[in-house]
């Protein structure tokens, strides 16, 4: 990573750790230009790659930040610099949509829009097409996730929808930020658990000296390691997809995203259960920070594809290759992605 990109991460770290209210923090994130991470420097971005995007979104998760930063980063990359100039980088995704596209105008309701009330542009998949909708004409029904983060419904009436071509389903692209957020939150909860285990004295010693506790935390750390590795690889695959959409190679990163989101969802089991077990009663209180991680992990593992959804989808994608071709399929894809990243 270049020095400049490391500076982006340092800036982000200061913002995420600053403890501002969500609305203020979102403003700070936008003023720092973080959503423009993937745009070329000539277009006012940082010229970051998708590995950087993973690192930045992961960092938000590490600080239990529930802002739709990942959607903004990917949305700006897809929509281009107009997302910044016309929509202040406030781009979000709808998890699902009901309604109709008629002559390029959308009438219907978008559901599961994180921070929809403060966003300006929403990307949604309607009738098999990905479109962008200006939120200023929408009726907002506010809602919130069980972790207390805003998650709204947006109702549109004959709103002009602009086509936004994507290299895979918008649903899969929406899963990407959640993978990185889970990776970060797993490590954030792990850091709390390690700190607690080294401080909390029972039986005349820190509980972190007890083998039963050590073995459990190792299991949690391994789960976090798996998500971090899977997430990094899925983001690189997505980067390959965007690189190649303009050229001859068409690369749909759904396979990698499916595998990584599924792995992340599964890892949340070990992550949340062990973090709470190690913390005992203190981790169950509103005052202590653990629930800021664990309650978001329960939300993020369900958003943009739960375990059942991605297991079945990945199973189908795999079965289509068949036992004879699966290995060649896996290696050809990873060789291609690694070459693209090199």
């Amino acid at each position: 990573m270049s020095t400049e990109r490391q500076m982006v991460l340092d800036t982000a770290e200061r913002i995420f750790a600053g403890g501002a209210t969500p609305e203020t923090m979102w403003q700070q994130v936008i003023e720092a230009g973080l959503p423009a991470l993937l745009l070329p420097e000539a277009d006012g971005g940082f010229g970051g790659d998708w590995g950087d995007a993973f690192s930045l979104i992961r960092l938000a998760g590490y600080h239990a930040v529930g802002l739709p930063l990942g959607e903004a980063i990917i949305g700006v990359a897809l929509f281009g610099s107009e997302a910044i100039s016309a929509f202040d980088s406030r781009v979000v995704f709808a998890e699902s949509a009901s309604g109709t596209l008629d002559g390029g105008n959308f009438t219907g309701i978008l559901h599961g829009v994180a921070s929809g009330r403060t966003a300006r542009l929403v990307l949604a998949s309607i009738a098999g097409q990905t479109v962008g909708l200006d939120i200023s004409g929408a009726i907002v029904t506010p809602g919130e996730t069980l972790a207390g983060d805003p998650c709204d419904s947006l109702e549109f009436r004959a709103a002009p929808a602009s086509l936004c071509p994507v290299p895979t389903s918008l649903f899969a692209l929406g899963a990407l930020p959640r993978i990185a957020q889970i990776a970060g939150a797993m490590d954030g909860a792990l850091a709390l658990a390690i700190g607690h285990a080294n401080e909390r004295q029972q039986f005349g010693k820190p509980i972190g000296k007890l083998q039963a506790v050590q073995q459990n935390l190792a299991v949690m750390a391994e789960a976090a390691a798996a998500v971090n590795c899977a997430g990094q690889a899925a983001f690189q695959a997505a980067g390959q997809a965007l690189v190649s959409t303009g050229g001859a190679v068409k690369f749909d990163p759904e396979f990698e995203i499916a595998a990584a989101k599924l792995r992340a969802n599964i890892a949340v089991d070990a992550g949340t259960a062990i973090a709470h077990q190690v913390h005992g009663g203190i981790g169950f209180t509103q005052d202590y920070a653990l629930h800021r991680f664990t309650r978001r992990l329960y939300v993020w593992r369900a958003e943009f594809g739960n375990e059942r959804f991605w297991a079945e989808r990945l199973g189908v994608l795999t079965a289509v290759q068949g036992g004879d071709k699966l290995w060649a399929y896996l290696t050809a894809r990873s060789d291609l992605v690694a070459m693209g990243a090199a």
């Binding site: 599924l262 792995r263 059942r308």
Partner: peptide, 14 residues
């Protein structure tokens, strides 16, 4: 069956 294949493949890939 797809679900079993999907889970095993996700872990293999990871």
């Amino acid at each position: 069956t797809a679900s079993v294949i999907g889970k095993l493949t996700a872990e293999l890939w990871t």
